[in-house]
Write a protein that binds this DNA or RNA. Structure first.
Lengths: 202, 202
DNA sequence: AAACCGATTGACTGGTCAGTCAGCCAGTGG
DNA sequence: CCACTGGCTGACTGACCAGTCAATCGGTTT
């Protein structure tokens, strides 16, 4: 039981997924051929289809894998005892750290799924909007407890908050704004500061 | 000289562009074949290539046409005598009105260009970031005059502001949030209120 | 009325790729 | 030592479609 006798020496499936991250990030989903993924993974063309139903399913898997982490993070933040503002800070921090930890994966997720809700992302709209809803819930709770002002719709505030963060990531991805470690740190507090100081009663 | 003798009865070029808006909005750029555009326009396949170098140039033209209006609007707002906050309100208002006036075109621009900076939008990054810069300038001026607090980087604030608006449009586009007339009106003030009350000194 | 010219047509082609499939090979069990 | 099994291989194919081009049309000029 030390090792599954059927387990290959290296996990080729994982190897393919990791290669796909790099290639998708470099060329974009539409411009990458399945052969590019196989080459990058150092694996035969056909093996991609052994593990995945289609090219799209590879992207699918990458997205779901990470997005579920985000959903968990947001829901955990929500169910904590922290202040609404601290909860939002946690969410912003998680997303920024995700980018810092694996910028290529986040680039793929944002560019090819989240911001491509037309073509590919359409499939994932439900998952995507679950994140918006969870954030909206944090805001709504804050409003109920009096920590946030009530004249701004929670759903709108949630979209603004998430939109601001994603735009920042986009700025980093396309090198429109500086992306040093201190910029990442700043970003976490900045987004929350900007949004919350607008949400909190004066 | 009353009418150019070479001008056709109907402007076929325009007809093709308008058809492209509808088809791109419905199917997305990648999923639309040139034949779809021609059919929708009620025009022969080859005529598209008479007026445009490629399918991409059609999208190109749609984007540039409208983005230049946005740039003008932002720069005009900036050069007015209004308060920084009012300037931002003008910008937000212009974008919201653009969507209200022609949601299909705005959908195409956002989904296929602005939020697709990887594939197609890469070409337009300079134009796109000019808008961010102009907004940042408004913020920076506000900071210089003391209307805005100075501990939030103007570039970051600009990205947050624009990101918030675009996310709202995305929400309307994909029917994640309600899009009635009153929602549009609310949105204009909401975005500015959210961002500015966070930017203005307390 | 004949030459001219830009607008318009749509059949055709060349290239590209996603996905298939027939079989290979390494490790395991009999 | 042979049969078996499942991960693994990569040449091949069928479909699709952007872009080309030779031909036609309708109005203008000489």
């Amino acid at each position: 039981m030390a090792a599954n006798p059927k387990a290959p020496a290296v996990d080729k499936r994982r190897q393919i997924l990791d290669a796909a991250i790099r290639v998708f990030a470099r060329q974009g989903f539409h411009a990458t051929r399945v052969a590019d993924i196989a080459d990058e993974a150092g694996v035969a063309y056909g093996l991609v289809y052994h593990y995945f139903k289609s090219k799209e399913e590879v992207l699918n898997e990458l997205f779901s894998e990470r997005w579920s982490l985000l959903l968990t993070a947001v829901e955990e933040a929500d169910s904590s005892e922290a202040s609404p503002r601290a909860k939002l800070e946690t969410v912003a921090g998680f997303i920024v750290e995700s980018y810092r930890h694996n910028p290529e994966l986040m680039k793929v997720i944002i560019v090819e799924v989240t911001r491509a809700a037309n073509s590919f992302g359409r499939t994932h709209l439900p998952e995507i909007s679950r994140a918006y809803d969870s954030i909206a819930k944090i805001v709504a709770d804050g409003q109920a407890s009096g920590a946030f002002r009530r004249d701004i719709d929670a759903e709108f505030a949630s979209m603004s908050f998430y939109g601001a963060i994603e735009q920042l990531l986009s700025g980093w991805i396309f090198e429109l704004i500086p992306a040093s470690d201190s910029d990442f740190e700043q970003a976490k507090t900045l987004v929350t500061a900007t949004i919350c100081d607008g949400l909190e009663p004066r």
